[in-house]
């Protein structure tokens, strides 16, 4: 069985689900951020795979991935800045304790 688009897609789905699990269960905001990076990587794999197998010459998927990486970098920067700000004011980044907005 030669390598096809589906292989990459399933790998992407697996990585995404793992990241999803981490993002929804971890209490440390830093680990949540790491999990989100995993999910973004998973989508990047899917994008590049689509680019490779569906538009191999146009490279549109790869261009899209570049922008995705840019946004991911921005997200990581701001996310970590927020984490630092929260840590400074509340001495914790445990998300179960940061729930002032609830009823």
């Amino acid at each position: 069985m030669s390598l096809g688009l589906e292989h990459y897609l399933v790998l992407s789905a697996a990585l995404f689900s793992i990241g999803l699990y981490g993002a929804l269960t971890k209490r440390s905001a830093v680990v949540i951020l790491m999990s989100i990076e995993l999910m973004l990587n998973a989508t990047n794999i899917a994008l590049v795979a689509f680019s490779r197998y569906i538009v191999p010459v146009l490279l549109t998927g790869q261009v899209f991935t570049i922008f995705s990486i840019v946004v991911a970098a921005a997200e990581a920067t701001v996310g970590l800045a927020i984490i630092m700000a929260i840590y400074r004011s509340r001495e914790t980044i445990d998300t179960t304790k940061i729930d002032l907005m609830k009823w």
Binding site: L20, A23, L24, T25, I32, T95, T96, D99, L100, M101, K102, W103
Partner: peptide, 17 residues
């Protein structure tokens, strides 16, 4: 209804999924 609003973003995320 507000009992559902726990303030736990991760619970909301789970429901989204």
């Amino acid at each position: 209804i507000r009992k559902a609003q726990t303030g736990q973003l991760q619970l909301y995320g789970m429901f989204i999924i």
